[in-house]
């Protein structure tokens, strides 16, 4: 989904930069970019943020797989630096386009990774005020709730995702499993087990059949 978004935003940007009437003028010195729209600037900043996010996640993986404490600390710091740079990019994107819910969602993710749950949830809430059915934000926010131990909010998010986007509900279920691997809560564990069984069991009555005999 994100790759698609990046592609769309990149295409939009490229199309406008190289297309006719795109804010470019041709003079004796060649082509000159004269002006970009706020939407183009927002897309550019957003894409920059995603690049930093990708690097940050890569550093996180390296930190996790390192044997030496020194390396783990080094990569963790690099990951943190990249997430901080990502937040700057997303904030810049939102400055250009304050309806860009995708940037708000990613800002929430970066804040969460930096341990700032308050601003993280605030960013997700803003994204969902603009686009209430934006499943990635519902899923990300639920992971923030999970980290805060707000299990009822996380469960409610799962049910919402289950109704509107079962693939994202599956992603959240994986996060629940990961949480349960390091936390104990018998009630939540039973709920997760039941929902997993139900999701698997009811596939036949969830499908949308073809309209032919």
């Amino acid at each position: 989904m994100y790759r698609t978004l990046v592609f769309v935003l990149t295409t939009l940007l490229a199309g406008n930069v190289w297309g006719a009437g795109s804010g470019m003028s041709s003079g004796s010195d060649g082509f000159e970019v004269t002006q970009r729209t706020p939407e183009q600037l927002a897309a550019s900043s957003y894409n920059d943020g995603l690049k930093h996010k990708k690097r940050a996640l890569s550093y996180e993986q390296r930190a996790a797989s390192s044997d030496k404490a020194k390396d783990r600390a080094k990569y963790a710091k690099r990951a943190r630096d990249q997430f901080e740079r990502a937040t700057e990019d997303y904030r810049k994107a939102i400055g250009y386009d304050n309806r860009m819910y995708q940037a708000m969602n990613e800002l929430g993710f970066a804040y969460r990774k930096l341990g700032d749950h308050e601003n993280s949830i605030r960013a997700y809430n803003t994204a969902l005020q603009i686009e209430p059915a934006f499943a990635p934000a519902i899923e990300y926010r639920a992971e923030a709730y999970l980290e805060l131990g707000q299990l009822n909010h996380a469960k409610a998010a799962y049910m919402e995702l289950y109704r509107i986007d079962q693939a994202q509900a599956g992603v959240l279920m994986q996060a629940f499993d990961a949480w349960l691997a390091t936390n104990e809560d018998s009630e939540f564990s039973a709920w997760v087990a039941e929902r997993k069984q139900l999701a698997s069991l009811t596939q036949a009555v969830m499908e949308i059949p073809r309209r032919d005999w």
Partner: peptide
């Protein structure tokens, strides 16, 4: 009953499937 309905043993959901529990089958 839901579990039984969806089980291969009864086979109910082989025909009565999909969100309307009717399915595209005869």
């Amino acid at each position: 009953g839901l579990e039984l309905f969806l089980s291969p043993r009864t086979g109910c959901s082989a025909c009565h499937r999909g969100f309307t529990l009717s399915g595209p089958v005869r």
